[in-house]
Amino acid sequence: MFADTLLIIFISVGTALLSEGITYILVYRTETYKKLKAEVEKQSKKLERTKEALGDSSDKNQKKKLERQEEKLKTNSRDLSMVKMKSMIVIAFTFTSLMSMFNSIFDGRVVAKLPFTPISWLHGISHRNLLGNDFTDSSFIFLYILCTMSIRQNIQKLLGFAPSRAAAKQSGGFFGQAQPGVK
């Protein structure tokens, strides 16, 4: 059981690095992405400052200026997501095949023992393809999802690929934590 658990952590780290690697090759290193990201960050901070300065003011000109800034930010955010789309498609294809491979390897195997009984609507994931009614048995997919949730964001942060907070805040979680590994 412990060997399986370690293997899942290793797989999770590996897939997180793979997805960041693919994204780096296809997106992060491109000039278009760098330019757009810098632009979005700059505009987000500018918009934040403008909003702070404006407060509850009802000046129509200021409001129009704010709307223009928001519109520009939206356009750039959309362009940025289009740039990211290419890598997301490649990652989706890669992970779909990888996941089916891992699912067949770990099919019917209890990879860990949960110290709690998951709520009923999580049984489909936590007890996927497992025999018996002991819901403290954990399936591969449940542990893999948890590993991905924790490891991927930390790897992104350590590598410096995490989206900036200002941009994420302004675009309402637009750059929020994507989980391409969880299919």
Binding site: M1, F2, T5, I9, A112, L114, P115, S138, L143, S150
Partner: peptide, 9 residues
């Protein structure tokens, strides 16, 4: 993840 792994191990 850490809780589950340590508990299982």
């Amino acid at each position: 993840v850490v809780w589950i792994i340590v508990y299982s191990a």
